[in-house]
Write a protein that binds this DNA or RNA. Structure first.
Lengths: 209, 209
DNA sequence: ACCGCTACCAAACGGCCGTTAGACGATGAT
DNA sequence: ATCATCGTCTAACGGCCGTTTGGTAGCGGT
């Protein structure tokens, strides 16, 4: 024995890192674990293990397990919302912009599959209060789609007998469902999917001239 | 004290019922609890409480908690599949039949909202083996939609440049998403939703004449 | 040389989890 | 009257959960 004996030889694999860096790792690892096991089935033990630290040490960074889910979810939601809002504000008629929005939304989903899956699947694990804190008081995401459809309808580009809210929910359905079946390197590319879904969605609501 | 004293007065609220009846109650209660809390967050304690029995007593009916989820899920899946298959087999051209299928699928979803939600949301909580045992080896549900679309395409009713698999996934997306926002007694009736979603889906894929 | 802070460890906490074993009262058949 | 069976209770099991408390090594600043 050449170590000071006993307790000191047992320094575990724990690297020491600056706060910011560890925080980024933590969010990344938590996202992946939530993705693989689901929020409720995932344990802080799982997350700590992958970071090479003890689960108690996580509390240096968080106040509760729920905080992790909240941060993961609100980050990806904020990002996705920025994408669609940016595309909704481009020039062109409302239907062209809607196509643009759909393409951006689907591509963002495919390129951030893990985060998006956690967002869409585990949102219901958040208590109602924090859920609406994420979504905004009246479903910001849905609003972008609905407003564009409503606008297009006023310009005669969309069937007059269609309820814009229902149309928005239909489009959001087909696009959000993508997280269920898209796999990178699979049968279709993200761009193919985005373009085809947009085409179907727009044909589905456009007025027949 | 007129009871034989002590232990005997403590007969809890437990009613004794025949096996079949209790089994039906058990499935019903389990479905609701899984719906409200999610499978992982739900406990056998929750379920036993609502049945007025102890959690240990549940093992007279099941071998494991997972059995409950499996039974709930496979029941509603089987039922829904029967609905769409029946409608797929009606007379008419493939596009008419597809409309019929979509309407049936959406109405079944709305009329069995709790079961459908558990099915769609908690399917991922089943181990892969039992998951495919439910879905059938190659996604029976998806197949019904895809086959009809493929058939319609061969008859020139659907755009030739469209991949039937992608089209099926688009339709399944908009229709399956319904469980996320439909509420009985809300803004729209199940029949409205079914009809409108079917209309949009079919216009989205139909060939322009 | 000392201090204070930062990033973690060590060890425990109460609590609930799914699951099992054995006992037991009521019921219905013999 | 006896007896098997059925549906449930009682009581525990080991195990993992999220969370808390109190330490402590190492570093940068002074």
């Amino acid at each position: 024995m050449r170590q000071p004996a006993g307790r000191s030889a047992r320094r575990s694999g724990g690297e020491r890192k600056p706060r910011e860096e560890r925080w980024a790792e933590l969010i990344e690892v938590a996202t992946r674990v939530f993705y693989e096991k689901g929020y409720d089935a995932a344990s802080l033990q799982d997350i700590a293990d992958r970071l090479g630290m003890l689960k108690g040490s996580l509390y240096y960074y968080i106040q509760s397990k729920e905080d992790l889910l909240f941060d993961v979810i609100s980050a990806v939601h904020k990002e996705g919302l920025a994408v669609v809002r940016a595309r909704a504000g481009t020039p062109g008629d409302p239907l062209q912009r809607l196509r643009n929005v759909i393409v951006g939304h689907v591509e963002h989903t495919c390129q951030n599959l893990v985060q998006t899956t956690v967002f869409l699947h585990e949102l219901s694990a958040l208590p109602p209060e924090r859920r609406t804190e994420v979504l905004g008081n009246e479903h910001a995401y849905q609003g972008v789609f609905r407003d564009l459809i409503e606008l297009a309808q006023k310009e005669g580009l969309v069937r007059a007998d269609l309820d814009p809210r229902l149309a928005a929910l239909s489009v959001l359905g087909s696009t959000n469902w993508v997280y269920r079946w898209f796999r990178p390197g699979g049968e279709f590319t993200a761009e193919q999917i985005a373009a085809e879904l947009a085409e179907m969605a727009i044909r589905g609501i456009a007025s027949t001239e």
